[in-house]
Nucleic acid binder design. Sequence first.
DNA 1: GCAATATATCAAAGTTCCTTGATGAGTCAA
DNA 2: TTGACTCATCAAGGAACTTTGATATATTGC
Lengths: 107, 107
Amino acid sequence: MATTTDRDLERAAALFRALADPTRLGIIERLRGGEQCVCDLTDMLETAQSRLSFHLKTLKDAGLLRDRRQGRWIYYALDPDAIAEIESAVAAIRPSASGLRVVKRCE
Amino acid sequence: MATTTDRDLERAAALFRALADPTRLGIIERLRGGEQCVCDLTDMLETAQSRLSFHLKTLKDAGLLRDRRQGRWIYYALDPDAIAEIESAVAAIRPSASGLRVVKRCE
DNA sequence: GCAATATATCAAAGTTCCTTGATGAGTCAA
DNA sequence: TTGACTCATCAAGGAACTTTGATATATTGC
């Protein structure tokens, strides 16, 4: 089992922080079925355009989304690698089966 | 597949927010092997006592930890139910296989 | 009871994050 | 080129989170 460095913890915390907002989780949910342009997300989420743009950038900066321009529209999509990264971060916090029997006492 | 309510998103965001800090992830990592008293965590994490106490409370309020007093020590442990809850929150953001082919266009 | 130990809580200050409204930049069509 | 449209960015204010140091509470041993 690999040891966890401070950098790993920072990265994992950054991923979780990106997920720590209901609006951003709503965005992700709407991208599960495939890429969407910002205009559709604006309609679906009924939110101010600059606010949506801020959260999209937050997710993109964390590596969770990718975007591509097509004509005057910009399409956002989930980055599968990031989802895998999140899953491995969660796996890293699951109790280790081998450790369940260990009981440590203060002297 | 169950629909996701605003309350679900709020709860999932709260869980992820609790994980969105490297100190708290460090605490969780040290609890993977079983419960620990605060004194041991203080030694391991080399942090101010009130600061550690704050983060323990944050994790406990989010439902991730349980504590029990034994004599003059208080032991913290991961709550397996919460870990399961996190895993299901992550499962909810994984791209749905059936949706990968859907391409939605702005008119 | 008293002192020592382990931990929680509180208030104040600092820091980061979020929202809003305004403006900028890229694209298309006429 | 101009105007309309789509989206990003910026600045300012507010809200939420974090850290720190001081103090409070609970437990134990003497």
